[in-house]
């Protein structure tokens, strides 16, 4: 069933702050096998001009995707999550995420497209720090594949 176009532009309330920890960044960097010292060594991060260790570029997805759950599970929108795959992903950064950040995410339905029974839903997650300054915007496109013919 095609998603309702009138949901485009709908914005969901900002999330409670997610506090970025040094050890969580370290865990993520180790999981992707990336030994860049900017992720684990505050002195190395400072040498690059950052106040504390920074996170790998895709780290913030865990935060924005959790926020997108509001949209995905919105019963009024009626997305069938069992048929959903991740179509594409884009980030636009004002600055890298860093340890100590308290990040809030505001999710907005950016686009809905229906094609051959599949729904394409793009959610924009705008991420701000505790001072209200923009850090990064994530654009997440999900595809709900057409239900198989019974």
């Amino acid at each position: 069933m095609a998603l309702d176009q009138s949901f485009v532009g709908r914005t969901y309330p900002a999330t409670a702050p997610y506090e970025v920890g040094r050890e969580k960044i370290r865990e993520f960097a180790e999981a992707i096998g990336d030994a860049n010292p900017a992720y684990t060594d505050p002195a190395a991060a400072r040498a690059l001009g950052y106040p504390d260790v920074i996170a790998p570029p895709t780290f913030v997805f865990a935060v924005t995707f959790k926020a997108a759950g509001e949209v995905i599970q919105d019963p009024q929108l009626g997305l069938d999550y069992s048929r959903v795959v991740h179509g594409d992903q884009r980030f636009a950064y004002t600055r890298p995420v860093r340890a100590g950040d308290r990040l809030t995410v505001t999710s907005t339905i950016e686009k809905i497209k229906s094609m051959a029974g599949s729904d394409f839903l793009t959610i924009r997650g705008e991420v701000h720090d505790e001072r209200g300054e923009h850090v990064v915007t994530a654009h997440t496109m999900l595809v709900a594949r057409a239900a198989e013919e019974a």
Binding site: I32, G33, D34, N36, A38, Y39, L48, G49, Y50, I54, P56, P57, T58, V85, H86, G87, D88, Q89, R90, F91, A92, Y93, R95, P96, H139
Partner: peptide
Amino acid sequence: TMAEAVRVVTDWTGDPGAVVEYGVRF
């Protein structure tokens, strides 16, 4: 996969914060 692919860029620049935009299609 997205995290690994951009390592070619961050290993090249040395500074991961130099990435201002990054997008992929799966």
